[in-house]
Each structure stands twice: as C-alpha cells, then as structure tokens.
Simulated scan of single mutants.
Amino acid sequence: MIPLEFADKLFRSALLSLAGNRAAEAFALKYGLRLGAHKFVAGETLTEALEKIQRLNDKGIAATLDHLGEGVTRISEADSFREEYSRLLIGIRESKADCNVSLKPTQMGLAIDPGRAYDNIKQIVKEARSMRNFVRIDMEDSAYTDDTINIVRRLHAEGYLNVGTVIQAYLFRTEKDIRRLSLEKVNLRLVKGAYKEPKTLAFARMEDVNANFREIIAARLRSGIYTGVATHDEAIIDWVKSFVKEQTTPYSSFEFQMLYGIRTQLQETLAKEGYRVRCYVPYGRMWYPYFVRRLAERPANVLFILKNMIKH
C-alpha cells in the first residue's frame, strides 16, 4: 500500500504540473467557471469581484482583492496590469469596500525588467497610500523570494509603509526572513506555501511545515507587529486562538486570512467570535494557474469540480 503522505505528494505534483499545460488551460478557460471554478474565482471583471466583496463585508469579513495574472512575457502586459490596479483602487474607494489589494511582482514585470517592475509597484503603492489603502505583494516561487523581499524593504526605506509581503513556512530560509522583516516592522501574511519547491529549499514533510508555521506565527504575535495568519487548517487556527489567549495578545494585532470560496462558514464563525477576518478575493481572465494551485491543496476541491462536470 502507498503511504498516505507519499500519495498526497504525487497528487499535488500531478496537479501542479498541469499549471503549464496549454491544452488543460484552454479547456479550463473555456468551461472552468461554469464547471465550478467560480467557487474559487470571484469573476472575470472588477464589477463582479466588488459585488462579492460587498457580500463579505456585510458579514463582517474584510477582503484583499487580487487581479489575477503572473509570468507576463511583455512589459506592455505589465503596464496593463498596473493600469488595472489603478482602476481597482478607485473601485474600492468608490464602493467604500473594506478591502485592500494584493498583487504578484511577476505580473508587474519582475521577470522581464526588474527596474520597470519596481516602478510599476511603487506607483500602485503610492496611489494606494493617497487613498489610505494597503498593498500586499504576494510571494511566488522561490526564484523570486529575494527580489520580492527587497522590493518591500526598499519601499519601506523610501517611506511607503502601506506595503507588506508574504512569508512561506515551508522554506528553510523563513525564520531568518521573519527576524529581519520584523525588525523593520513590515506587515506580513504568513502561509504554509503552495508552490512546488526542491528538497534543498523546502521542508518535504507536512509535519515539519506545520511546526515551522506555528513557530513563525508565535514569533510574529509576540512581536506585536500586525500579522495575517493565512490558513484553513482548523488545528492551526485553534492553536492560534489558544496562544493569543495565553499571551493576552490583542485581537487588533492580527487577523485570520482565508481564500474566497474555501471554509466560508468558518470565516463567518470567526468574524462572529470577534476575530478580524480577511478573505483573499481573486478575479480576472488569467485565473487558470491560481485555480490549479487551489485544486492541488485539497482532494475535496477536485471532487467538487468533478461533480459539477458530471452535472453538466
């Protein structure tokens, strides 16, 4: 019999390999939203996404809005994403949504022209600051970890404090990054990690990832610097609740973060219990890579899609 942990790795690896499969992407983009991708993606337009955010806000749940797109190949594409984020920020302000924004550095051109990418990101952060909003620079795979952290540190050094990033618990380097960014008082979202990484860079066993996740959460909560704990793992959530009670950590110093369409009832329950909760709301036409990562995280997500395919 194949060990459960090994089978889970094979499952995740097989699904993640589909992220670059053009035939699978073409099929998904043609039928995906109708067959169930709408569960994880708030729509293809900003209007659709803002409507979903209003429903979340009505339930006491804040949001972070992400216009999906990564790995652009032309700088003109990156400029288009920057322009969309300008419209996105205006849309948040006009709708009076309780919402900040998330973006990926590669969609701003990091893999093509790092200097231009920095300028694009800085413009968005500057516009957000003028609207009293916050920008989360998402973390992608390990090839971009250093560049992403350096962008945030540079922006902070230039006085843009309304920007933070994401730290992934499955990387060996994480503890060092946490220490440095905490000293610089950078707002962080802590996650387990969802990319396929080599054994030389990341923990292979989930129990090691979970142990490191708890350690970095504890370090951040003790620091008093605002932190987003991003997880759907109820064991981790219960551990955080016990930890903050024991440490008398104020609820105002952290928030739970979860993804749109996943553990919706749990999000509502936590909000009713008085915890700050923020939902990551993605939208846009380039949703396929994001969608594949959500499927790879849990077999139940795949079953949901298969059921919808059978229905149709």
Results as ranks from 00 to 15, higher is better:
L18E: 02
E44V: 06
I2A: 09
L266F: 04
D238T: 05
V209K: 05
Q107H: 12
T106Q: 05
D177A: 05
T174S: 03
D146T: 15
R116Q: 10
V152L: 07
T45W: 02
L155R: 02
D238N: 14
Y288R: 15
E215F: 01
S253E: 15
T248L: 10
G274F: 15
I178P: 01
I225N: 11
V135S: 06
V292A: 01
R136T: 06
E84M: 14
S86D: 13
Y283H: 05
T200S: 12
Y251D: 15
Y170R: 11
Y251M: 13
N301Y: 14
I92T: 07
A300H: 13
V41C: 10
G43H: 02
D98V: 13
G274Q: 14
L221V: 08
G115K: 06
R116G: 00
S76H: 00
E25H: 08
A62Y: 13
I124R: 04
G193H: 09
I75A: 04
N133C: 02
I305R: 11
E273N: 09
I225A: 04
A62I: 13
T269G: 11
L89K: 00
I53C: 10
A169C: 10
R132P: 01
M206P: 00
A128K: 04
Q247H: 08
N301F: 10
A28R: 05
T249W: 09
N120C: 12
P289F: 06
Y275T: 12
T249H: 07
T231R: 04
R263I: 00
L33T: 12
F254V: 12
L161K: 13
D58M: 11
I61C: 07
T200M: 11
E234N: 11
I61V: 14
D113V: 06
N187E: 14
I217F: 05
A300T: 15
T64Q: 00
K104V: 05
K192C: 00
V72F: 02
R129A: 15
F203E: 00
T73K: 09
V135R: 01
D138M: 08
T64P: 03
E25V: 14
M1R: 03
L16T: 01
I2L: 02
L29P: 01
L88E: 06
L65D: 11
E84K: 04
I236Q: 06
T269C: 03
K176Y: 03
D66F: 03
V152K: 00
K126N: 10
T227Y: 10
I217Q: 04
S86T: 09
L306H: 12
R180A: 00
S182D: 11
G71R: 00
T47W: 01
G91Y: 09
Y195W: 06
M206K: 04
R93T: 10
K272R: 12
L171T: 15
G69I: 12
I112P: 13
E246W: 03
E140G: 04
Y160V: 03
S76T: 09
C279R: 12
V101I: 08
W287E: 07
D233G: 05
D98E: 13
R293T: 12
T174A: 07
N212A: 04
I178N: 01
